[in-house]
Design a protein around this nucleic acid. Structure first.
Lengths: 247, 247
DNA sequence: GAGTGGTCTAGACCACGTC
DNA sequence: ACGTGGTCTAGACCACTCT
Protein backbone atom coordinates (compact mmCIF):
# COMPACT_ATOMS: atom_id res chain seq x y z
CA UNK A 1 0.00 0.00 0.00
CA UNK A 2 1.02 3.64 -0.26
CA UNK A 3 4.02 4.09 1.98
CA UNK A 4 4.28 7.85 2.08
CA UNK A 5 1.53 9.51 0.14
CA UNK A 6 1.19 13.26 0.07
CA UNK A 7 0.39 13.50 3.73
CA UNK A 8 -1.72 16.62 3.56
CA UNK A 9 -5.11 16.28 1.94
CA UNK A 10 -7.05 19.39 1.09
CA UNK A 11 -9.14 20.78 3.92
CA UNK A 12 -12.39 20.25 2.08
CA UNK A 13 -11.42 16.65 1.32
CA UNK A 14 -10.62 15.85 4.94
CA UNK A 15 -13.82 17.50 6.04
CA UNK A 16 -15.64 15.42 3.45
CA UNK A 17 -14.17 12.26 4.96
CA UNK A 18 -15.51 13.28 8.34
CA UNK A 19 -19.03 13.95 7.10
CA UNK A 20 -18.97 10.91 4.80
CA UNK A 21 -18.07 8.68 7.72
CA UNK A 22 -20.87 10.15 9.83
CA UNK A 23 -23.42 9.59 7.11
CA UNK A 24 -22.27 6.09 6.24
CA UNK A 25 -21.97 5.06 9.89
CA UNK A 26 -25.70 5.29 9.59
CA UNK A 27 -27.03 7.20 12.51
CA UNK A 28 -28.55 9.67 10.08
CA UNK A 29 -31.83 8.70 8.40
CA UNK A 30 -32.64 9.21 4.74
CA UNK A 31 -33.24 12.85 3.81
CA UNK A 32 -31.99 14.05 7.15
CA UNK A 33 -31.33 17.80 7.15
CA UNK A 34 -27.70 18.72 7.74
CA UNK A 35 -26.57 21.94 9.44
CA UNK A 36 -26.44 24.99 7.17
CA UNK A 37 -23.25 25.83 5.31
CA UNK A 38 -22.67 28.78 7.60
CA UNK A 39 -23.10 26.62 10.68
CA UNK A 40 -20.76 23.95 9.37
CA UNK A 41 -18.19 26.60 8.52
CA UNK A 42 -18.27 27.87 12.08
CA UNK A 43 -18.38 24.40 13.58
CA UNK A 44 -15.26 23.23 11.74
CA UNK A 45 -13.53 26.62 11.71
CA UNK A 46 -13.24 26.85 7.94
CA UNK A 47 -14.59 29.27 5.39
CA UNK A 48 -18.03 28.77 3.92
CA UNK A 49 -16.40 28.22 0.56
CA UNK A 50 -14.49 25.25 1.90
CA UNK A 51 -17.71 23.82 3.27
CA UNK A 52 -19.32 24.27 -0.13
CA UNK A 53 -16.45 22.47 -1.87
CA UNK A 54 -16.88 19.62 0.58
CA UNK A 55 -20.60 19.44 -0.12
CA UNK A 56 -20.02 19.47 -3.90
CA UNK A 57 -17.66 16.53 -3.49
CA UNK A 58 -20.09 14.51 -1.40
CA UNK A 59 -22.81 15.42 -3.85
CA UNK A 60 -20.93 13.89 -6.77
CA UNK A 61 -20.49 10.78 -4.63
CA UNK A 62 -24.22 10.63 -4.07
CA UNK A 63 -23.84 11.02 -0.28
CA UNK A 64 -25.74 14.29 0.13
CA UNK A 65 -27.78 16.68 -1.98
CA UNK A 66 -28.55 20.36 -1.68
CA UNK A 67 -31.68 22.30 -2.53
CA UNK A 68 -31.72 26.04 -2.99
CA UNK A 69 -33.48 27.72 -0.10
CA UNK A 70 -34.14 24.45 1.73
CA UNK A 71 -30.85 23.06 2.90
CA UNK A 72 -28.50 20.12 2.43
CA UNK A 73 -29.75 16.60 3.07
CA UNK A 74 -28.50 13.05 3.45
CA UNK A 75 -29.17 11.04 0.30
CA UNK A 76 -31.45 8.03 0.68
CA UNK A 77 -29.40 4.88 1.23
CA UNK A 78 -30.46 3.41 -2.12
CA UNK A 79 -28.76 6.26 -3.93
CA UNK A 80 -25.60 6.22 -1.88
CA UNK A 81 -22.89 3.79 -2.83
CA UNK A 82 -23.56 3.83 -6.54
CA UNK A 83 -20.88 5.87 -8.21
CA UNK A 84 -19.05 5.80 -11.49
CA UNK A 85 -15.59 4.40 -11.38
CA UNK A 86 -13.12 3.97 -14.13
CA UNK A 87 -12.07 0.55 -12.96
CA UNK A 88 -15.63 -0.62 -13.11
CA UNK A 89 -15.28 -4.27 -12.44
CA UNK A 90 -13.20 -4.86 -9.34
CA UNK A 91 -14.27 -1.57 -7.85
CA UNK A 92 -17.97 -2.30 -8.13
CA UNK A 93 -17.41 -5.81 -6.83
CA UNK A 94 -15.49 -4.63 -3.79
CA UNK A 95 -18.16 -2.07 -3.10
CA UNK A 96 -20.86 -4.70 -3.04
CA UNK A 97 -18.79 -6.95 -0.87
CA UNK A 98 -18.15 -9.47 -3.64
CA UNK A 99 -14.86 -11.14 -4.38
CA UNK A 100 -13.44 -10.13 -7.74
CA UNK A 101 -10.92 -12.32 -9.51
CA UNK A 102 -9.54 -13.01 -12.94
CA UNK A 103 -8.00 -15.72 -15.04
CA UNK A 104 -5.58 -14.60 -17.72
CA UNK A 105 -6.11 -16.62 -20.90
CA UNK A 106 -3.46 -14.96 -23.02
CA UNK A 107 -1.13 -12.02 -23.40
CA UNK A 108 0.07 -11.34 -26.90
CA UNK A 109 1.72 -8.47 -28.76
CA UNK A 110 0.36 -7.74 -32.21
CA UNK A 111 -0.03 -4.99 -34.77
CA UNK A 112 -3.24 -2.97 -34.59
CA UNK A 113 -5.88 -3.80 -37.17
CA UNK A 114 -7.49 -1.02 -39.15
CA UNK A 115 -10.65 -1.11 -37.05
CA UNK A 116 -8.73 -1.11 -33.79
CA UNK A 117 -6.45 1.68 -34.98
CA UNK A 118 -9.41 3.85 -35.85
CA UNK A 119 -11.14 3.15 -32.54
CA UNK A 120 -7.99 4.14 -30.68
CA UNK A 121 -6.89 6.91 -33.00
CA UNK A 122 -3.50 5.33 -33.60
CA UNK A 123 -1.51 4.26 -36.66
CA UNK A 124 -2.57 0.88 -38.10
CA UNK A 125 0.10 -1.68 -37.36
CA UNK A 126 1.23 0.02 -34.19
CA UNK A 127 2.19 -2.55 -31.56
CA UNK A 128 -0.55 -3.24 -29.03
CA UNK A 129 -0.87 -5.92 -26.36
CA UNK A 130 -3.93 -8.13 -26.52
CA UNK A 131 -4.91 -9.38 -23.08
CA UNK A 132 -7.72 -11.88 -22.83
CA UNK A 133 -9.13 -12.58 -19.39
CA UNK A 134 -12.08 -14.24 -17.73
CA UNK A 135 -13.45 -12.13 -14.93
CA UNK A 136 -14.61 -13.92 -11.82
CA UNK A 137 -17.10 -12.89 -9.20
CA UNK A 138 -17.09 -15.04 -6.09
CA UNK A 139 -15.06 -17.59 -8.06
CA UNK A 140 -17.63 -17.92 -10.83
CA UNK A 141 -16.97 -16.63 -14.36
CA UNK A 142 -19.12 -13.64 -15.23
CA UNK A 143 -17.22 -11.76 -17.90
CA UNK A 144 -14.83 -12.17 -20.81
CA UNK A 145 -12.51 -9.23 -21.45
CA UNK A 146 -10.50 -8.62 -24.58
CA UNK A 147 -8.27 -5.64 -23.93
CA UNK A 148 -6.03 -4.06 -26.53
CA UNK A 149 -3.51 -1.93 -24.73
CA UNK A 150 -1.43 0.82 -26.24
CA UNK A 151 1.82 1.23 -24.33
CA UNK A 152 3.43 4.67 -24.58
CA UNK A 153 6.83 3.40 -25.66
CA UNK A 154 5.38 0.63 -27.80
CA UNK A 155 6.97 -1.91 -25.45
CA UNK A 156 4.36 -4.67 -25.17
CA UNK A 157 3.19 -5.76 -21.74
CA UNK A 158 4.59 -9.04 -20.44
CA UNK A 159 2.47 -11.69 -18.84
CA UNK A 160 4.62 -11.71 -15.70
CA UNK A 161 4.30 -7.95 -15.40
CA UNK A 162 0.54 -8.20 -15.57
CA UNK A 163 0.29 -11.01 -13.05
CA UNK A 164 2.55 -9.19 -10.66
CA UNK A 165 0.72 -5.89 -10.67
CA UNK A 166 -2.64 -7.62 -10.78
CA UNK A 167 -4.35 -5.32 -13.25
CA UNK A 168 -3.80 -3.68 -16.60
CA UNK A 169 -4.36 -0.25 -15.14
CA UNK A 170 -1.78 -0.87 -12.42
CA UNK A 171 0.69 -1.96 -15.09
CA UNK A 172 0.05 1.20 -17.06
CA UNK A 173 0.39 3.30 -13.96
CA UNK A 174 3.80 1.79 -13.32
CA UNK A 175 4.75 3.02 -16.78
CA UNK A 176 3.68 6.54 -15.95
CA UNK A 177 0.26 6.71 -17.56
CA UNK A 178 -3.13 6.24 -15.95
CA UNK A 179 -6.58 6.16 -17.43
CA UNK A 180 -8.65 9.06 -16.20
CA UNK A 181 -11.50 9.13 -18.66
CA UNK A 182 -13.22 6.46 -20.73
CA UNK A 183 -15.96 6.10 -23.28
CA UNK A 184 -18.30 3.17 -22.72
CA UNK A 185 -20.99 1.83 -24.96
CA UNK A 186 -23.26 -1.06 -24.11
CA UNK A 187 -25.50 -3.31 -26.16
CA UNK A 188 -26.51 -6.97 -26.39
CA UNK A 189 -24.96 -9.97 -28.14
CA UNK A 190 -25.34 -13.73 -28.39
CA UNK A 191 -22.82 -16.12 -26.90
CA UNK A 192 -20.85 -18.02 -29.53
CA UNK A 193 -19.46 -21.44 -28.71
CA UNK A 194 -16.16 -20.06 -27.49
CA UNK A 195 -17.68 -17.41 -25.24
CA UNK A 196 -20.21 -19.90 -23.97
CA UNK A 197 -17.49 -22.36 -22.97
CA UNK A 198 -15.40 -19.74 -21.21
CA UNK A 199 -18.36 -18.24 -19.37
CA UNK A 200 -20.05 -21.55 -18.57
CA UNK A 201 -23.32 -20.71 -20.30
CA UNK A 202 -25.21 -22.26 -23.19
CA UNK A 203 -24.32 -21.14 -26.70
CA UNK A 204 -27.04 -18.75 -27.79
CA UNK A 205 -27.33 -17.20 -24.35
CA UNK A 206 -27.68 -13.43 -24.30
CA UNK A 207 -24.64 -11.48 -23.21
CA UNK A 208 -24.14 -7.88 -22.20
CA UNK A 209 -21.63 -6.39 -24.62
CA UNK A 210 -19.65 -3.43 -23.37
CA UNK A 211 -16.99 -1.67 -25.38
CA UNK A 212 -14.65 0.83 -23.85
CA UNK A 213 -11.92 3.19 -24.93
CA UNK A 214 -9.85 4.62 -22.11
CA UNK A 215 -7.69 7.76 -22.26
CA UNK A 216 -4.84 9.11 -20.18
CA UNK A 217 -4.75 12.44 -18.39
CA UNK A 218 -3.34 13.88 -21.62
CA UNK A 219 -6.19 12.34 -23.56
CA UNK A 220 -3.94 9.78 -25.19
CA UNK A 221 -5.84 6.59 -26.08
CA UNK A 222 -4.60 3.78 -23.85
CA UNK A 223 -6.90 0.84 -24.24
CA UNK A 224 -9.76 -0.57 -26.22
CA UNK A 225 -11.63 -3.24 -24.30
CA UNK A 226 -14.43 -5.51 -25.47
CA UNK A 227 -16.31 -7.10 -22.59
CA UNK A 228 -18.97 -9.78 -22.57
CA UNK A 229 -20.97 -10.40 -19.43
CA UNK A 230 -23.42 -13.10 -18.43
CA UNK A 231 -27.00 -11.95 -17.76
CA UNK A 232 -26.69 -12.37 -14.02
CA UNK A 233 -24.09 -9.62 -14.04
CA UNK A 234 -25.39 -6.08 -13.82
CA UNK A 235 -23.73 -2.77 -14.33
CA UNK A 236 -25.21 -0.05 -12.17
CA UNK A 237 -24.79 3.66 -12.42
CA UNK A 238 -26.30 6.83 -11.06
CA UNK A 239 -27.33 9.59 -13.43
CA UNK A 240 -27.82 13.14 -12.31
CA UNK A 241 -29.80 15.67 -14.27
CA UNK A 242 -27.60 17.77 -16.47
CA UNK A 243 -27.26 21.44 -15.92
CA UNK A 244 -29.66 23.24 -18.21
CA UNK A 245 -28.12 26.16 -20.02
CA UNK A 246 -29.22 26.88 -23.55
CA UNK A 247 -28.82 29.78 -25.93
CA UNK B 1 -40.59 26.91 -26.24
CA UNK B 2 -39.97 28.56 -22.85
CA UNK B 3 -41.80 31.85 -23.17
CA UNK B 4 -40.37 33.82 -20.29
CA UNK B 5 -37.75 31.88 -18.43
CA UNK B 6 -35.67 33.46 -15.75
CA UNK B 7 -34.02 35.90 -18.07
CA UNK B 8 -30.73 36.21 -16.24
CA UNK B 9 -28.42 33.24 -16.33
CA UNK B 10 -25.47 33.13 -13.99
CA UNK B 11 -22.37 34.84 -15.26
CA UNK B 12 -20.35 31.66 -15.30
CA UNK B 13 -23.09 29.90 -17.26
CA UNK B 14 -23.27 32.61 -19.92
CA UNK B 15 -19.51 32.62 -20.17
CA UNK B 16 -19.63 28.84 -20.53
CA UNK B 17 -22.03 29.24 -23.45
CA UNK B 18 -19.57 31.55 -25.15
CA UNK B 19 -16.60 29.23 -24.75
CA UNK B 20 -18.70 26.15 -25.54
CA UNK B 21 -19.83 27.72 -28.79
CA UNK B 22 -16.25 28.61 -29.72
CA UNK B 23 -15.05 25.09 -29.06
CA UNK B 24 -17.92 23.38 -30.84
CA UNK B 25 -17.78 25.75 -33.79
CA UNK B 26 -14.61 23.84 -34.37
CA UNK B 27 -11.86 26.26 -35.09
CA UNK B 28 -9.98 24.84 -32.13
CA UNK B 29 -8.12 21.56 -32.62
CA UNK B 30 -8.09 18.69 -30.14
CA UNK B 31 -6.03 19.38 -27.03
CA UNK B 32 -5.67 23.03 -27.90
CA UNK B 33 -4.40 25.08 -24.97
CA UNK B 34 -6.86 27.70 -23.75
CA UNK B 35 -5.83 30.98 -22.14
CA UNK B 36 -5.00 30.78 -18.45
CA UNK B 37 -7.72 31.33 -15.88
CA UNK B 38 -6.20 34.68 -14.97
CA UNK B 39 -6.15 35.76 -18.60
CA UNK B 40 -9.74 34.69 -19.19
CA UNK B 41 -10.81 36.54 -16.07
CA UNK B 42 -9.24 39.72 -17.37
CA UNK B 43 -10.48 39.19 -20.91
CA UNK B 44 -14.11 38.80 -19.84
CA UNK B 45 -13.91 41.18 -16.90
CA UNK B 46 -14.97 38.65 -14.31
CA UNK B 47 -13.28 37.21 -11.25
CA UNK B 48 -11.02 34.23 -11.54
CA UNK B 49 -13.47 32.28 -9.43
CA UNK B 50 -16.19 32.81 -12.00
CA UNK B 51 -13.84 31.59 -14.70
CA UNK B 52 -13.11 28.51 -12.64
CA UNK B 53 -16.82 27.78 -12.17
CA UNK B 54 -17.24 28.07 -15.93
CA UNK B 55 -14.38 25.66 -16.55
CA UNK B 56 -15.77 23.16 -14.00
CA UNK B 57 -19.08 23.25 -15.87
CA UNK B 58 -17.52 22.68 -19.27
CA UNK B 59 -15.40 19.95 -17.75
CA UNK B 60 -18.45 18.00 -16.61
CA UNK B 61 -19.79 18.37 -20.12
CA UNK B 62 -16.60 16.90 -21.51
CA UNK B 63 -15.80 20.06 -23.48
CA UNK B 64 -12.52 20.96 -21.80
CA UNK B 65 -10.17 19.50 -19.21
CA UNK B 66 -7.64 21.06 -16.86
CA UNK B 67 -4.29 19.80 -15.68
CA UNK B 68 -2.54 21.15 -12.62
CA UNK B 69 0.47 23.21 -13.61
CA UNK B 70 -0.13 22.77 -17.34
CA UNK B 71 -3.29 24.58 -18.28
CA UNK B 72 -6.80 24.03 -19.58
CA UNK B 73 -7.32 22.26 -22.90
CA UNK B 74 -10.00 21.51 -25.48
CA UNK B 75 -11.20 17.92 -25.17
CA UNK B 76 -10.65 15.71 -28.20
CA UNK B 77 -13.76 15.65 -30.36
CA UNK B 78 -14.44 11.96 -29.63
CA UNK B 79 -14.89 12.76 -25.96
CA UNK B 80 -17.05 15.80 -26.48
CA UNK B 81 -20.72 15.28 -27.03
CA UNK B 82 -21.03 12.23 -24.82
CA UNK B 83 -22.66 13.25 -21.60
CA UNK B 84 -25.06 11.68 -19.15
CA UNK B 85 -28.61 12.81 -19.44
CA UNK B 86 -31.57 11.78 -17.44
CA UNK B 87 -33.83 11.58 -20.44
CA UNK B 88 -31.41 9.22 -22.09
CA UNK B 89 -33.32 8.21 -25.13
CA UNK B 90 -34.58 11.25 -27.00
CA UNK B 91 -31.72 13.35 -25.76
CA UNK B 92 -29.04 10.99 -27.00
CA UNK B 93 -30.87 10.61 -30.29
CA UNK B 94 -31.17 14.33 -30.85
CA UNK B 95 -27.53 14.73 -30.03
CA UNK B 96 -26.50 12.24 -32.67
CA UNK B 97 -28.79 13.78 -35.23
CA UNK B 98 -31.25 10.92 -35.18
CA UNK B 99 -35.01 11.19 -35.17
CA UNK B 100 -36.53 9.88 -31.96
CA UNK B 101 -40.14 8.78 -31.85
CA UNK B 102 -42.49 6.59 -29.88
CA UNK B 103 -45.61 4.56 -30.20
CA UNK B 104 -47.77 4.28 -27.11
CA UNK B 105 -49.09 0.72 -26.74
CA UNK B 106 -51.03 1.24 -23.55
CA UNK B 107 -51.65 3.47 -20.57
CA UNK B 108 -53.19 1.79 -17.59
CA UNK B 109 -53.65 2.56 -13.90
CA UNK B 110 -53.00 -0.32 -11.53
CA UNK B 111 -51.99 -1.14 -7.99
CA UNK B 112 -48.27 -1.63 -7.37
CA UNK B 113 -47.12 -5.23 -7.02
CA UNK B 114 -44.92 -6.21 -4.12
CA UNK B 115 -41.78 -6.24 -6.28
CA UNK B 116 -42.57 -2.89 -7.83
CA UNK B 117 -43.43 -1.37 -4.47
CA UNK B 118 -40.12 -2.47 -3.04
CA UNK B 119 -38.17 -1.19 -6.04
CA UNK B 120 -39.87 2.18 -5.70
CA UNK B 121 -40.02 2.28 -1.94
CA UNK B 122 -43.78 2.78 -1.88
CA UNK B 123 -46.73 1.01 -0.30
CA UNK B 124 -47.84 -2.14 -2.16
CA UNK B 125 -51.15 -1.46 -3.86
CA UNK B 126 -50.47 2.23 -4.33
CA UNK B 127 -51.86 3.44 -7.64
CA UNK B 128 -49.27 3.65 -10.41
CA UNK B 129 -49.64 4.23 -14.13
CA UNK B 130 -48.20 1.59 -16.40
CA UNK B 131 -47.11 3.08 -19.74
CA UNK B 132 -45.92 0.72 -22.43
CA UNK B 133 -44.23 2.25 -25.43
CA UNK B 134 -42.15 1.26 -28.42
CA UNK B 135 -39.28 3.63 -28.93
CA UNK B 136 -38.42 4.53 -32.51
CA UNK B 137 -35.17 5.72 -33.99
CA UNK B 138 -35.45 7.04 -37.53
CA UNK B 139 -38.89 5.40 -37.68
CA UNK B 140 -37.60 1.96 -36.82
CA UNK B 141 -38.40 0.26 -33.51
CA UNK B 142 -35.36 -0.09 -31.26
CA UNK B 143 -36.70 -0.23 -27.74
CA UNK B 144 -39.62 -1.41 -25.63
CA UNK B 145 -40.29 0.61 -22.49
CA UNK B 146 -42.46 -0.44 -19.59
CA UNK B 147 -42.71 2.51 -17.26
CA UNK B 148 -44.46 2.42 -13.90
CA UNK B 149 -45.09 5.98 -12.84
CA UNK B 150 -45.87 7.17 -9.33
CA UNK B 151 -47.91 10.35 -9.45
CA UNK B 152 -47.66 12.57 -6.36
CA UNK B 153 -51.39 12.84 -5.80
CA UNK B 154 -52.05 9.26 -6.86
CA UNK B 155 -54.04 10.58 -9.83
CA UNK B 156 -53.11 8.26 -12.68
CA UNK B 157 -51.79 9.71 -15.92
CA UNK B 158 -54.25 9.85 -18.80
CA UNK B 159 -53.35 8.77 -22.30
CA UNK B 160 -54.40 12.12 -23.76
CA UNK B 161 -52.22 13.92 -21.26
CA UNK B 162 -49.23 11.82 -22.24
CA UNK B 163 -49.76 12.26 -25.95
CA UNK B 164 -50.15 15.99 -25.57
CA UNK B 165 -47.02 16.61 -23.56
CA UNK B 166 -45.08 14.09 -25.59
CA UNK B 167 -43.17 12.46 -22.75
CA UNK B 168 -43.67 11.03 -19.31
CA UNK B 169 -41.17 13.42 -17.81
CA UNK B 170 -42.94 16.40 -19.34
CA UNK B 171 -46.20 15.14 -17.88
CA UNK B 172 -44.63 14.83 -14.46
CA UNK B 173 -43.10 18.27 -14.77
CA UNK B 174 -46.54 19.73 -15.47
CA UNK B 175 -47.59 18.21 -12.15
CA UNK B 176 -44.78 19.91 -10.34
CA UNK B 177 -42.25 17.11 -10.02
CA UNK B 178 -39.26 16.40 -12.19
CA UNK B 179 -36.77 13.57 -12.16
CA UNK B 180 -33.32 14.82 -11.28
CA UNK B 181 -31.51 11.62 -10.38
CA UNK B 182 -31.88 8.03 -11.48
CA UNK B 183 -30.39 4.62 -10.82
CA UNK B 184 -29.73 2.54 -13.92
CA UNK B 185 -28.69 -1.06 -14.17
CA UNK B 186 -27.99 -2.89 -17.41
CA UNK B 187 -27.72 -6.53 -18.36
CA UNK B 188 -28.71 -8.87 -21.19
CA UNK B 189 -31.89 -10.80 -21.94
CA UNK B 190 -33.48 -12.90 -24.64
CA UNK B 191 -36.38 -11.64 -26.74
CA UNK B 192 -39.60 -13.49 -26.01
CA UNK B 193 -42.24 -13.80 -28.72
CA UNK B 194 -44.01 -10.63 -27.64
CA UNK B 195 -40.90 -8.49 -27.45
CA UNK B 196 -39.68 -9.94 -30.73
CA UNK B 197 -42.90 -9.01 -32.50
CA UNK B 198 -42.93 -5.48 -31.14
CA UNK B 199 -39.28 -4.88 -31.89
CA UNK B 200 -39.28 -6.64 -35.27
CA UNK B 201 -36.56 -9.12 -34.38
CA UNK B 202 -36.47 -12.91 -34.19
CA UNK B 203 -37.54 -14.55 -30.95
CA UNK B 204 -34.35 -15.59 -29.17
CA UNK B 205 -32.51 -12.47 -30.24
CA UNK B 206 -30.36 -10.88 -27.56
CA UNK B 207 -31.68 -7.67 -26.04
CA UNK B 208 -30.10 -5.03 -23.87
CA UNK B 209 -32.08 -4.91 -20.65
CA UNK B 210 -31.98 -1.64 -18.74
CA UNK B 211 -33.85 -1.02 -15.53
CA UNK B 212 -34.20 2.40 -14.05
CA UNK B 213 -35.61 4.04 -10.97
CA UNK B 214 -35.95 7.81 -11.17
CA UNK B 215 -36.27 10.20 -8.22
CA UNK B 216 -37.48 13.77 -7.83
CA UNK B 217 -35.51 16.69 -6.44
CA UNK B 218 -36.80 15.64 -3.03
CA UNK B 219 -35.65 12.10 -3.64
CA UNK B 220 -39.17 10.83 -3.98
CA UNK B 221 -39.35 7.75 -6.24
CA UNK B 222 -41.18 8.72 -9.41
CA UNK B 223 -40.78 5.94 -11.91
CA UNK B 224 -39.55 2.43 -12.42
CA UNK B 225 -38.81 1.70 -16.05
CA UNK B 226 -37.87 -1.59 -17.69
CA UNK B 227 -36.36 -1.13 -21.12
CA UNK B 228 -35.44 -3.66 -23.78
CA UNK B 229 -33.28 -2.59 -26.70
CA UNK B 230 -32.32 -4.31 -29.93
CA UNK B 231 -28.58 -5.03 -30.37
CA UNK B 232 -28.13 -2.28 -32.94
CA UNK B 233 -28.97 0.24 -30.26
CA UNK B 234 -26.11 1.42 -28.09
CA UNK B 235 -26.02 3.37 -24.91
CA UNK B 236 -22.91 5.49 -24.60
CA UNK B 237 -21.52 7.21 -21.58
CA UNK B 238 -18.39 8.95 -20.46
CA UNK B 239 -16.73 7.98 -17.18
CA UNK B 240 -14.31 10.21 -15.40
CA UNK B 241 -11.91 8.97 -12.78
CA UNK B 242 -13.28 9.39 -9.31
CA UNK B 243 -11.65 11.65 -6.84
CA UNK B 244 -9.37 9.64 -4.60
CA UNK B 245 -9.64 10.46 -0.92
CA UNK B 246 -9.22 7.69 1.58
CA UNK B 247 -8.72 7.60 5.32
C1' DG C 1 -39.06 38.13 7.25
C1' DA C 2 -35.77 34.87 8.38
C1' DG C 3 -32.96 31.34 6.84
C1' DT C 4 -31.10 28.62 3.23
C1' DG C 5 -28.13 27.69 -0.76
C1' DG C 6 -26.18 30.14 -5.20
C1' DT C 7 -23.22 33.63 -7.20
C1' DC C 8 -19.56 36.90 -7.31
C1' DT C 9 -15.61 39.39 -5.79
C1' DA C 10 -10.42 40.37 -4.64
C1' DG C 11 -6.65 38.77 -2.82
C1' DA C 12 -3.31 35.37 -0.91
C1' DC C 13 -0.70 31.31 -0.87
C1' DC C 14 0.34 26.41 -2.24
C1' DA C 15 1.49 22.51 -5.50
C1' DC C 16 2.73 21.14 -9.82
C1' DG C 17 5.08 21.26 -14.66
C1' DT C 18 8.08 23.11 -17.76
C1' DC C 19 12.06 25.42 -19.21
C1' DA D 1 12.26 30.92 -12.03
C1' DC D 2 8.00 31.32 -13.88
C1' DG D 3 3.41 30.28 -15.11
C1' DT D 4 -0.28 27.20 -14.40
C1' DG D 5 -4.23 25.33 -11.89
C1' DG D 6 -5.74 24.14 -6.79
C1' DT D 7 -7.04 25.75 -2.24
C1' DC D 8 -8.51 28.96 1.16
C1' DT D 9 -10.27 33.18 3.01
C1' DA D 10 -13.83 37.01 4.29
C1' DG D 11 -17.29 39.47 2.86
C1' DA D 12 -21.27 40.92 -0.03
C1' DC D 13 -25.46 40.34 -2.35
C1' DC D 14 -29.07 37.55 -4.88
C1' DA D 15 -32.72 33.88 -5.31
C1' DC D 16 -35.38 30.65 -3.30
C1' DT D 17 -38.49 28.37 0.42
C1' DC D 18 -41.04 28.14 4.26
C1' DT D 19 -44.13 30.10 7.77
Amino acid sequence: MGTSRSESAAKYASLASVIRAEVIAGSLPDNHLLPSERDLAEQYAVSRDTVRKMIRLLETEGIVYSAHGRGTFVSPAILRGVHDSIDGFSDAARQRGDLAGQFVLGVEAKGASLALASALGIRPGRIVTHVRRVRLLNRRPVGLHDAYVVTPDEHPIQRAELEQSGSIYATLRSRGVAPVVALDSVSAALAGSEEAALLAVEPGSPLLLCERVAFSDRRTPLEHCVMHYVPSFRFARRITAAFDARS
